[in-house]
Amino acid sequence: MGRGQGVGAFFSALVAFAVGVTVMLSLLLGDNPALFGDRPGSDELARRIALPGDVLLRLIVIFLALSIVIGIANLLFVHVSRLTSGKFYSAVLLASFGFTIYWYVTRRGDTSLLEAVQLPIESALAALLFVSLVHGSSRVMGKRNDIWGLLFVAVVVVVLLASLPLAELAPVKAWSDWLMRIPVSAGVRAMLLGIALGMVVTGVRAVLGQDRSYRG
């Protein structure tokens, strides 16, 4: 590793560590003035501790908003460059972009484009997803002809049947309720725990410089 890169990596790790610890302390101590006891001025002390974290978080939100603008600019540059390759859809994208901007500027407040174009398209995509899922589910036993494939199909059928408003399917509804209440709920909670643990580990690694920081 070059010496310049080493200095840069050290600097970036240092910045990540300082920002991470500052925000963490601000959130932990700033929100709990009771930790400083009943001494006079404890509220003011907590407020001062909370301030750097608040400022940094607001800065992050501003940068994230700025990244949207950068993303739009990048999108435009990429598709302008693809125009030279005769990419028709890039031309459509750029024309749509320009037309939408023109529409918004000249007919401010009119959001009929959203209702007439984007809403039907995205709804149609969601409907296509339904068809694809059904088709994929119908081929499970063709790809995986074993007990696990059978279990998957059985659960799908039970949950779907239970959602039907037919009185004859009351027993199936009881099975489905059990599935949703016990295994699904357990799985959801397990995922929440996993996400929380993963976020803690990733955060600690980034703060301690063991993982990639903002320099990527």
């Binding site: 088709h135 589910s137 081929r139 036993m141 002809n145 799908v156 059928v157 779907l160 049947l161 959602s163």
Partner: peptide, 16 residues
């Protein structure tokens, strides 16, 4: 939903 159940059941019976 009823049609989906039919498709899934018939398809998987065939493949099984």
């Amino acid at each position: 939903t009823l049609a989906a159940v039919l498709v899934i059941v018939i398809g998987n019976l065939f493949y099984a």
